[in-house]
């Protein structure tokens, strides 16, 4: 089955809205999932590093105050 022109490809035989909406939602969800999963590792490590600096600061303050 062939489409005659690019305009017809966008139209998809009258069902263009449904097809491209489905494609768009699927693609958007998958792209979001992939980028969030890949960035999660870096975010987790930065969180742990921040917690470590916080603990370090608390220990120092406890030492100087008492």
């Amino acid at each position: 089955m062939q489409f005659e022109s690019f305009a017809e490809f966008i139209n998809m035989g009258g069902y263009g809205f449904y097809v491209w909406l489905s494609y768009g939602v699927t693609f958007g969800c998958l792209a979001t999932l992939i980028t969030l999963s890949v960035r999660k590792k870096r975010k987790v490590l930065i969180e742990i590093a921040k917690k470590m600096t916080r603990e370090q600061r608390l220990k120092e303050n406890r030492g100087t105050k008492s």
């Binding site: 999963s37 742990i48 590093a49």
Partner: peptide
């Protein structure tokens, strides 16, 4: 990929994770 991030989060107190965190920072 998510499993890797989850393991790091669960083991946040372990020394090997702390080293990785320092390197990342």
């Amino acid at each position: 990929v998510r499993y890797r991030a989850e393991i790091l989060a669960r083991n946040g107190m372990r020394p090997w994770v702390r080293e990785l965190a320092k390197a990342e920072e």
